[in-house]
Design a protein around this nucleic acid. Structure first.
Lengths: 203, 203
DNA sequence: ACCTGAACACCGTTCAAGT
DNA sequence: ACCTGAACACCGTTCAAGT
């Protein structure tokens, strides 16, 4: 049950690791997606769920928690890719959701905004981890990224005036710095943007 | 060059469509990622880039533009998955970036926030499209989603107090409604959250 | 010089057969 | 009843050979 650090988790690779044929894994799991979900849940046991929230620091704790979630996932890009399409449902994943909700409530965020917010915070963290992992892993992904950067640098001012005006800012900043800011932005937005179809305040 | 509506775009499938072997495609393209990027760019020709921004409606136009981008991508889940890890660099993709920047500038968003914001807005829209597409396409993905929903409903109040307190809100709302709110939240956050290492205002 | 058949090295999943 | 070998139906990518 306890899996070790194997890159690119695959039915066949895992079966080989276990000295058996790939068919045997289907006794424990229905498909690859479910396998990935189960492994992720195992990995999430290692993320730090410190439950006490220093008052006034709920935003920082939220960012920290999502950072450590993304860090776990970055080390396993093939899992990150699955989780992006998948939504696991293991106990540690539920605990993560519960902790995120707790922090949003500590910040006075209304229930529906907190509920919907957790979803997109996890989406952002997962997508960032998947993208980062892909770039680390494959030379092609890195190449494509450079292709975009040079296309942005060499864009013509006639065709793309706002890109040219923006200049180096489009490629400025390191990954973690941009990720931190992205999380802060999203948290701020979640906290301040009312959800639809809330009954109007009675008058 | 002009590709038609083929689901699950694959080197081999595309080659067969063109009555040739898969090796032939490598004359035009270096790898699958690049192929997907090129097809996406073609598809983006159909998104509506109306350049005039009614004053005061820049947020709505931003949401509309990202909605139509996500809609194009939802119809081609295999592309959405690639683009999530990939960042294309074709002319229509650059035009989309330019249009997003234009709208953020119309709202008075500072350059670095706009630049970094475009990146995460596209990430959110792409991830949402990929997830939606996966759910439409595969029964497994739908099943996993239901597994999470029932796990959330049946969570014990002892282990997961905040999930239980949140109740139905975690699964409330239709996809497009949640997506619209998510975009609005992110836009609000981008507009109000300062980026780091901006020089302090001189005093 | 340009294209491509055939091969290599992988996948996920199923199912009949074995213990 | 439980497990699994072998097969099926796919992948991406390379490269020697053909025109």
């Amino acid at each position: 049950m306890g899996e070790e650090g194997l890159e690119r988790v695959t039915m066949r690779r895992l079966a080989q690791e276990l000295d058996t044929g790939p068919a045997s894994l289907y006794v424990y799991v229905d498909n690859t997606a479910e396998l990935h979900g189960a492994i992720l849940d195992e990995l999430l046991a290692s993320v730090d769920f410190d439950p006490d929230v220093p008052p006034g620091r709920w935003r920082d704790r939220l960012v920290e928690l999502l950072f450590s979630y993304a860090q776990v996932l970055s080390a396993h890009p093939s899992l990150a890719r699955s989780v992006l399409l998948l939504r696991p449902s293991g106990p540690h994943y539920l605990r993560l959701i519960d902790s995120l909700l707790a922090l949003l409530y500590a910040g006075g965020v209304p229930a529906r905004q907190a509920a919907w917010g957790v979803d997109i915070l996890l989406q952002m963290a997962t997508a960032t981890a998947a993208e980062q992992g892909a770039r680390d892993q494959s030379v092609d992904a890195e190449g494509e990224h450079e292709a975009l950067e040079s296309a942005l640098r060499e864009a013509s001012a006639d065709a793309y005036p706002h890109i040219v005006r923006t200049g180096g800012e489009l490629v400025s900043g390191a990954g973690p710095e941009r990720f931190r800011w992205a999380l802060q932005s999203l948290i701020d937005g979640i906290a301040m943007t009312p959800t639809p179809s809330t009954e109007a305040p009675d008058a």
